[in-house]
Design a binder for these strands. Structure first.
Length: 583
RNA sequence: CGGAACAUAGCGCAGCCUGGUAGCGCAUCUGCUUUGGGAGCAGAGGGUCGGGGGUUCGAAUCCCUCUGUUCCGACCA
């Protein structure tokens, strides 16, 4: 490609509404332009990268035995009513009407359509398993689109759906997809983790999210430093400490702590580390449907955690006897029950159920609330001073916790979800009556698996992991062009033109994606260098009259430092570059 | 959906408080000069100051309203 014929849409300054690096750089490099909130046009440069992601995904899906299809973006409401999601899905489902006033939606996903296809086309167990995929635009009317292409309303997604005669077959394909995803993200050059996304409880359908590690991610991922365990922070189990509670040595004392009603306050006021302070959080208990109808007031339940730990609401909700969704007790109820403000609640002699976090249960000689305003207890000890019955996992894991699989310690990093695979079982096939005949000629509902990759999001995620102050540094697999040839002094040196054109042609003949910066003399060398670096081409060759006079051309890799360019005899450049490109 | 902010040339911004000629940098166009890190000089074009309404002799500026955009949170995965 010649720069003179391409659309170079680079920006010196980044638009003020872009806050994350990938968004800024995609705008600055001229990859995308915003049309409206959450809607973007892909410019020629950006589209080249998007197509590369697609191509890699397509190759690996084909390799893994999946069959490509292409389903409509616009889907009839009938199918969604059949699955029940026309009513369940909520505002994210963009509903539209045609000229006959019939209801349709812009597909946010395609379970309904593919299941409809499967029930019509598949009739025998002998045809199974089958795995269909498509790479198609999806539309989700996000409440808050943000970060450019990272969370947009219209986006490109690879979605695959597999159909099976039994759970074993589903499991096989699931494992196969898991492997294919690992291969895809490895080929894309990304630092990623497959994250266990199942509930951990019995009966939870198997599911993994694939996260690219990047500080701008929206999810916290906990992963072991020695094993391949990884989970969402909310999902990761905080295992019980492997030591016994130290002996009680201090005397239980009630001390004045006027107005010290947060852990931080108390910690400073008493000079005690927050991990020696226990906090007590009161939440509402669970009611049966009948009790709710009868207007019964829910009992309160006390949750006790170490001061430096955070309550995990998901874990709390799952415990029998605790309301889901979690409801914190109001200040009035606490005052009514205990006669003190929330900041001074403690576990001693509570008239309600007390659940103690695993880590809090092994603290000795701790500080806690006294259930009396402006007073705390110090030197408190379990069983000697305060009894409890239940120990539960109530907290979020923190960096350095033991990995739940027993190997290594947990690291916590932000992740961008780029892929998600899950076994959905018969939810859609049952609702849509997608059956095949089994060996006995009996209709059986098919089992289903579902596998997604955010294709456009992958592009943004790749940039989040690969940039410097000069711009994007593309992994080779994603670079829109592999190499740029920069002409300098072309207007006064025939040799610059001849040499650069010759190299350009030679590389093109080798099917190398080469970018020749042949912009005229109004474009200064600095501009050409800056653009090539911003757009992130992995390799750069500079041809100038100055260098050619001495028979020299210059090569520099995008990852190299500014001063690291190497000078080469100009006759050697082709073989040098071929070597760099692994040709 | 709750909270907050912003909207002035293609992009980045000033002007608004204290009402009175719409400005700066980059980009664009023309001419000359220049060519190894976002060139110089000279000139030019480009704005119903987001829309509507109000106050006023007079509104980018003050008030009301609508729309759009962004940020934080909730939701989603």
């Amino acid at each position: 490609m010649r720069a003179s014929q391409f659309l170079i849409a680079t920006l010196k300054e980044s638009p003020s509404d872009a806050v994350v690096k990938s968004h800024q750089l995609m705008l600055r490099a001229g990859m995308i332009r915003k049309l409206a909130s959450g809607l973007y046009t892909w410019l020629p440069l950006g589209l080249r990268t998007l197509r590369k992601v697609e191509a890699i995904i397509r190759e690996e899906m084909d390799e893994a035995g999946a069959l490509e299809v292409l389903m409509p973006i616009v889907q009839p409401s009938e199918l969604w009513e059949e699955s029940g999601r026309w009513f369940e899905y909520g505002g994210e489902l963009m509903r539209i009407k045609d000229r006959h006033n019939r209801d349709f939606c812009m597909g946010p996903t395609a379970e309904e359509v593919i299941t409809d296809l499967a029930r019509n086309e598949l009739s025998s167990y002998k045809q199974l398993p089958k795995n269909f995929y498509q790479i198609q635009t999806k539309f989700r009317d996000e409440t808050r689109p943000r970060f450019g292409i990272m969370r947009s309303r219209e986006f490109l997604m690879k979605d695959a759906y597999s159909f099976h005669a039994n759970a074993d077959s589903l499991n096989d394909t699931y494992q196969r997809m898991h492997k294919a995803y690992n291969k895809i993200f490895t080929r894309l050059g990304l630092d990623f983790r497959p994250v266990n996304a199942d509930s951990g409880s019995i009966g939870g359908a198997l599911s993994h999210e694939f996260h690219v590690l990047a500080s701008s991610g929206e999810d916290d991922i906990a992963f072991s430093d020695t094993s391949d365990y990884a989970a969402n922070v909310e999902m990761a189990e905080a295992i019980a400490p492997n030591f016994e509670r130290p002996a009680a040595t201090d005397t239980l004392t009630c001390v004045d702590t006027p107005d010290q009603n947060s852990i931080e306050d108390v910690s400073q006021f008493l000079g005690v580390n927050s991990n020696q302070i226990l906090k007590t959080i009161l939440v509402e208990g669970e009611l049966s449907e009948k009790e709710q109808k009868d207007g019964v007031t829910a009992p309160l339940v006390a949750l006790v955690l170490r001061g430096d730990h955070e309550l995990n609401e998901l874990k709390a909700e799952k415990i029998d006897g605790i309301a889901a969704p979690l409801v914190l007790a109001s200040e009035e109820r606490i005052i009514k029950l205990l006669g003190c403000k929330p900041g001074f609640v403690g576990p001693k002699d509570l008239p309600i159920d007390v659940l103690v976090d695993r880590s809090a249960a092994v603290v000795a000689n701790f500080v806690c609330g006294s259930n009396e305003d402006d007073k705390h207890l110090t030197g408190a000890n379990w069983q000697r001073d305060i009894t409890f019955l239940h120990v539960e996992d109530l907290r979020n894991v923190v960096e350095g916790d033991a990995s739940p699989d027993g190997e290594g310690r947990l690291n916590i990093k932000r992740g961008i979800e780029v892929g998600h695979i899950f076994q959905i079982g018969d939810k859609y096939s049952k609702a849509l009556k997608a059956t095949v005949l089994d060996e006995n000629g009996k209709a059986k509902v098919m089992h289903m698996g579902c596998y997604g990759i955010g294709v456009s999001r992958v592009v943004a995620a790749a940039i989040e992991q690969n940039f410097d102050d000069r711009g994007i540094i593309w992994p080779k697999a994603l670079a829109p062009f592999q190499i740029s040839i920069v002409q300098i002094d072309a207007n006064k040196s025939e040799e610059v033109i001849e040499r650069s054109e010759a190299l350009y042609q030679a590389l093109k003949d080798l099917n190398v994606e080469v970018f020749l910066d042949d912009r005229d003399k109004k474009t200064s060398p600095g501009v050409k260098f800056a653009d090539a670096e911003l757009m992130g081409f992995p390799h750069r060759v500079v041809m100038s009259s100055r260098g050619l006079k001495n028979g020299i051309v210059e090569y520099k890799g995008r990852e190299d430092e500014k001063g690291d360019a190497v000078e080469l005899p100009c006759d050697d450049i082709l073989s040098f570059v071929k070597n760099k490109l692994d040709l």
